[in-house]
Amino acid sequence: MSDDPKHVGLPVAGYVAQSADKVALVNNNKLVEEAVLRLLDQLAELPDVDKRWLSIGRTEIEKGFMAINRSVFRPARVEGDLNLQISGLIAALIAGLSEAKE
């Protein structure tokens, strides 16, 4: 697999640029996941299927694909002064709540 060119990561802390090969691999995983989820959608239409267990199975499959894709993209941990970042976030949330009350 080639590591070039790089696709720019999302503007989210911990997300990094990815190679075209990794993006293609995860896109293939997403297609397989969608095929499985559509099969589960069909099963949900059957009257004698236990919807609770089907829901549990669906959640576990979604979690599995998420884990597989994270294994490819390997998002990093947030860097920097976490206290400063959290303080700014809390201040923004408080300001937003104050505006919502007005």
Rank of each mutant, 00 (worst) to 15 (best):
Met1Gln: 07
Met1Asn: 07
Asp3Val: 06
Pro5Gly: 05
Pro5Trp: 05
Lys6Val: 11
His7Ala: 14
His7Lys: 12
Val8Asn: 11
Gly9Tyr: 02
Leu10Gln: 09
Pro11Gln: 11
Pro11Leu: 08
Pro11His: 07
Val12Ile: 15
Ala13Pro: 07
Tyr15Gly: 05
Val16Asp: 11
Val16Gly: 13
Gln18Trp: 10
Ala20Gly: 10
Ala20Asp: 15
Asp21Ser: 05
Val23Glu: 08
Val23Gln: 05
Ala24Met: 12
Leu25Gln: 13
Leu25Lys: 13
Asn27Lys: 09
Asn27Cys: 02
Asn29Ile: 07
Asn29Leu: 14
Lys30Cys: 02
Lys30His: 02
Leu31Ile: 14
Val32Phe: 13
Leu37Asn: 02
Leu37Trp: 00
Leu37Cys: 00
Arg38Asp: 06
Asp41Met: 02
Asp41Gly: 01
Gln42Thr: 02
Glu45Gln: 14
Glu45Lys: 15
Pro47Arg: 08
Pro47Phe: 01
Pro47Glu: 08
Asp48Val: 01
Asp48His: 06
Lys51Glu: 11
Arg52Leu: 11
Leu54Pro: 00
Ser55Met: 09
Arg58Thr: 03
Thr59Ser: 14
Glu60Thr: 08
Gly64Lys: 07
Phe65Gly: 03
Phe65Glu: 03
Phe65His: 03
Phe65Pro: 02
Met66Cys: 04
Met66Glu: 14
Asn69Ala: 04
Ser71Val: 00
Ser71Pro: 03
Phe73His: 10
Phe73Gln: 08
Arg77Leu: 10
Val78Gly: 05
Gly80Asn: 04
Gly80Gln: 09
Gly80Pro: 04
Asp81Ala: 09
Leu82Val: 13
Ile86Ala: 13
Ile86Leu: 13
Ser87Trp: 05
Gly88Val: 02
Ala91His: 12
Ala92Trp: 12
Leu93Asn: 13
Gly96Arg: 03
Leu97Glu: 12
Leu97His: 09
Ala100Ile: 02
